[in-house]
């Protein structure tokens, strides 16, 4: 069994009186694709925000490669290799596609302030290298042709891919995908599945929230089911589909 990459230990989050995430624990192993499912409002996105460091948990701990990262702000988690996409696209709309992806690359390229504002040779060298990496990531997703386009002008499906390229450019060890397929048509969804598998094959561990059951069940090796902030069960897609509690929630919800 592979090494544990991320370990979530008894984590809770409440907003005022509302308990959004209630005592959840699970592990993710290196190289895995894991999915979180659950009805709307079951706390999936909140859980994501806790892992990425955008929210601080009310109690519990998170370990990444055994390091306690519970109190880390998002930028610090990002710098050790936790990268994410957002449910409602969060592209930098005032920049071009490649500049968005460059934001991911910059996580690992050290840029000197003086060499940047005076445009010293070192700046051009680094900029060139960074752009090559960015183009490589865009090509991986098959969208290198739109590199110079403004993000705000792109159709929704492409924006999703750009966001994924941006997350990948940060060379993550753990990639958090928040509803990557929402808003995509059937053709794009199939492509997305291929891309996600390809990313995993390159050694990136993936945790995703996804409503589309076909995608979830075909991609994920393990699934966690949430309901009202609690973990209902965890297991392989087959086990999940047989679990009476899960059936009750999903059929009960219609």
């Amino acid at each position: 069994m592979a090494e544990v990459l991320l370990s979530v230990d008894n984590i809770s989050k409440n907003f005022g009186g509302l308990i959004a995430v209630d005592n959840i624990s699970f592990n993710i192993r290196v190289g895995q694709i894991k999915a979180i499912i659950g009805p709307n409002g079951s706390g999936k996105t909140t859980l994501f925000n806790l892992i990425s460091g955008h929210y601080q948990p009310s109690s519990g701990s998170i370990y990444f490669y055994g390091f306690n990262i519970t109190k880390w702000p998002a930028w610090k988690s990002a710098s050790v290799g936790i990268s994410r996409t957002f449910q409602n696209l969060a592209l930098f709309t005032n920049m071009s596609v490649i500049e968005n992806v460059l934001m991911g690359v910059h996580l690992h390229t050290k840029a000197g302030f003086l060499s940047s504002i005076f445009r010293l040779p070192a700046f051009f060298k680094r900029e060139k290298e960074a752009r090559e990496i960015a183009i490589e990531k865009l090509s991986l997703l098959g969208i290198s042709d739109i590199a110079e386009k403004k993000c705000g002008d792109l159709p929704f499906g492409l924006q999703r891919l750009v966001e994924m390229a941006r997350a990948l450019a940060a060379e993550p060890r753990l990639l958090l995908l928040d509803e990557p397929a929402s808003g995509l048509d059937i053709h794009d969804r199939n492509r997305l599945c291929e891309i996600i598998r390809q990313i995993r094959d390159e050694g990136v561990t993936i945790l995703m929230v996804e409503h589309d059951m076909n995608i979830t069940m075909s991609l994920a090796e393990e699934v966690i089911v949430l309901d009202s902030g609690k973990k209902i069960c965890e297991g392989t897609p087959k086990e999940i589909q047989r679990d009476p509690e899960v059936i009750r929630i999903y059929l009960g919800e219609g």
Partner: peptide, 21 residues
Amino acid sequence: SPFGRAFRALGSHEAAAQAMG
């Protein structure tokens, strides 16, 4: 430059900028 991009990123979407380190 990378610095300027970081500034623009934070002006455009603060949470996403954090997610980019």
